[in-house]
């Protein structure tokens, strides 16, 4: 039994190290893109179209992961594209998190008409396919990084709201909330001091997961050609181009896909790991 707990804990710390390590690599790539990238991500060279990766026949030295249909360096584009992905992750997700968590806490704790209004709005939001909602919003407000971020916030706050509301409902019925009430703590003090710390692990895990989701939404919007301008590199845009020339140059699709896959996976696993870290009962 103790051994099982130990192996689980060991698996957990491995998860944190691996996912945190990969995200560190992506963050460094985004911050120091001009220093790291071997080529200008926008430089086209029609003589160097669809060069295969360096280890294959017909490769050109200096183009480690090959080139795309316009002769642009795939590696450099992946590195620069991480800037867009991380901007979306670190701006859209926290804002959606704050809005959704506050509404979820208020709805779950106060109940009554506050809960009714929030729950009805959540119902309406839940009736939309989220991807279609995002595409619709960006098509309406216009493409660009700001629109993508705004669309993610507008759509994904309900993820936080639903989870936080449900957790708050559970916590509200706990004896220690009654005890705090007897002692005369105000409702706001109880919400902040007693309820919020119990809901926090779930919020942290969801925030990390949401960062991955935000990266994916940006990629999906790029994939249907609705994110930022087509020239600026994004992982989704590269994947969309790769999808069309998949039979001639698979590497244009494969490498951004692997990077996207690992990043999303890392955000998800980091969230699970942090959730346990934040929970004193599991320590």
């Amino acid at each position: 039994m103790a051994e099982a707990v130990l192996t689980r804990r060991r698996r957990r710390s491995w998860r944190l190290i691996l996912s945190g390590g990969w995200l560190g690599v992506v963050v460094i790539a985004a911050l120091f893109a001009p220093l790291i990238a071997p080529h200008d991500p926008l430089a086209q060279d029609l003589l160097l179209q669809r060069l295969p990766p360096a280890w294959m026949a017909g490769a050109e030295p200096g183009y480690l992961l090959g080139t795309d249909g316009l002769g642009r360096d795939v590696l450099s584009r992946i590195i620069y594209a991480s800037q867009v992905a991380l901007t979306v992750a670190f701006v859209a997700a926290p804002i959606a998190c704050i809005i959704g968590s506050v509404l979820g806490l208020l709805a779950g704790y106060y109940g009554g008409w506050v809960d009714q209004i929030v729950s009805r709005i959540v119902d309406v939001w839940m009736a939309f396919p989220p991807v279609l909602f995002a595409i619709l919003l960006v098509a309406v407000i216009g493409t660009g990084l700001h629109s993508v971020i705004l669309a993610i916030i507008v759509i994904d706050w309900i993820r936080f709201c639903r989870v936080v509301r449900a957790e708050t409902l559970v916590q509200r019925r706990m004896d220690y909330v009654d005890s705090a009430h007897i002692v005369g703590l105000s409702r706001i003090a109880i919400l902040v001091k007693e309820v919020l710390p119990n809901v926090l692990p779930a919020i942290v895990a969801l925030l990390s997961l949401e960062m991955g989701i935000a990266v994916i939404v940006e990629a999906i919007l790029s994939f249907v050609n609705l994110s930022i301008s087509t020239d600026d590199p994004t992982w989704g845009g590269m994947i969309a181009e790769g999808r069309t020339i998949i039979h001639f140059a698979w590497w244009v699709l494969v490498f951004p896909l692997i990077v996207l896959f690992l990043t999303v996976l890392a955000f998800g696993q980091l969230g699970e790991g942090l959730k346990d870290r934040f929970d004193p009962v599991l320590q």
């Binding site: 997961l209 990629a219 999906i220 896909l257 996207l260 999303v264 996976l265 998800g268």
Partner: peptide, 9 residues
């Protein structure tokens, strides 16, 4: 943690 979009690709 990996969504359907990536599985499809």
């Amino acid at each position: 943690s990996v969504p359907d979009f990536l599985w499809g690709l």
